[in-house]
């Protein structure tokens, strides 16, 4: 993850303008790395940083991109996902950005990536030691909608004045009979700071706890970086009599038959037809490549390899 400036020969080749490795200048990266290190040292604490203008609009992941740019090195392999998928505009653009600006290897396979930038999901496949997951964060302050004054929320974090956070959960139960917060579900990190895990579904919250991978969070517009080091306790807030629960899905993935994974609803027609498929496209593809099939899996879209794999597996079974 060490970064190196472009070699002068590359710069002179004139393929693109004379940008530094991974777009940001070295001083900026140092500044951001210091913020990251501070964030790792104080898990869950929002470290202010001098967020830069990036060649993309706010809301498209400028915070995550700056964090990734500051930690990525020439030997890294990058995966970028948006709502779990590798093939949506945001993911494709950011992947292309780093392929061009840092000339790093990119991948869609979770297991192969050393750095994963994500918007709104944690991959289904368990992350491992040495991997870094970078979250794009729109609003880093979990108390924001309850207490609009930043001066006040900072004090509340400083003195662990977190009664307000439970007020929100209380309101959920009072109004809907259960905790209705389904994403950006607040967590307490290492028994101290309350943190917004970015708008990931609460389904992913358990994956944050004692994760082997380093988790970094960057909010570009809000100019905040925070982090959860590997093997850190991350507890989702709840009540004794209304314990934290993740979403469950009644049916398996329509394409790969996977269960215990987060599913997206896909509308098929205007007659009410719909199906539920894995939100994590890599995971789904991987399963299908291994021959798993769901109820609606259209085999015509399958590659020949997976088909033959299926056939050979069926042959083996027989």
């Amino acid at each position: 993850m060490t970064s190196a400036p472009f070699s002068s020969s590359e710069a002179q080749s004139g393929a693109i303008a004379d940008y530094n490795f991974a777009y940001l200048d070295e001083q900026t990266k140092r500044m951001i790395r210091r913020a990251i290190l501070k964030g790792i040292a104080i898990p869950g604490y929002q470290v202010p940083f001098a967020s830069r203008e990036m060649p993309m609009p706010y809301g498209w992941g400028t915070g995550g991109v700056q964090v990734t740019a500051s930690i990525i090195g020439p030997d890294d392999t990058l995966k970028v996902i948006d709502q779990g998928a590798d093939d949506t505009t945001n993911a494709v653009s950011i992947r292309a950005f780093f392929a061009k600006m840092a000339k790093v290897k990119t991948t869609t396979h979770t297991g192969e990536a050393s750095v994963i930038q994500t918007r709104h999901r944690i991959p289904e496949e368990q992350l491992h030691e040495g991997q870094v997951i970078v979250f794009q964060v729109p609003i880093p302050e979990p108390l924001r909608f309850l207490e609009p004054r930043e001066t006040e929320t900072r004090k509340m974090h400083a003195v662990e004045d977190y009664g307000l956070m439970h007020v929100k959960l209380y309101e959920d139960i009072a109004q809907k009979g259960h905790i209705a917060t389904n994403y950006a579900y607040p967590v307490k990190v290492k028994g101290r700071y309350i943190m917004d895990p970015s708008p990931t579904p609460k389904f992913d919250n358990p994956k944050m706890n004692q994760s082997e991978a380093l988790q970094l969070y960057g909010a570009g517009r809000e100019m905040r970086i925070y982090a959860i080091p590997p093997y850190t306790d991350v507890v989702s807030l709840d009540f004794e009599d209304y314990p934290f629960e993740v979403q469950t899905f009644e049916e398996p993935c329509a394409l790969c038959g996977g269960t215990g994974v987060f599913l997206d609803e896909v509308i098929l027609d205007d007659q009410g037809g719909r199906m539920f498929v894995c939100s994590d496209s890599d995971y789904c593809e991987d399963r299908r490549a291994k021959g798993h099939r769901g109820a609606l899996s259209p085999d015509i879209y399958e590659s020949e390899e997976s088909l033959s794999a299926q056939i050979s597996q069926e042959g083996a079974d027989a």
């Binding site: 977190y162 009664g163 307000l164 439970h166 007020v167 309101e171 139960i173 009072a174 109004q175």
Partner: peptide, 18 residues
């Protein structure tokens, strides 16, 4: 809600049973 207004102080001092 009124209930949460009254309950807030309790939650702030660690009361965790809804």
């Amino acid at each position: 809600s009124a209930g949460a207004n009254v309950g807030e102080r309790l939650m702030a001092i660690g009361e965790q049973h809804y």
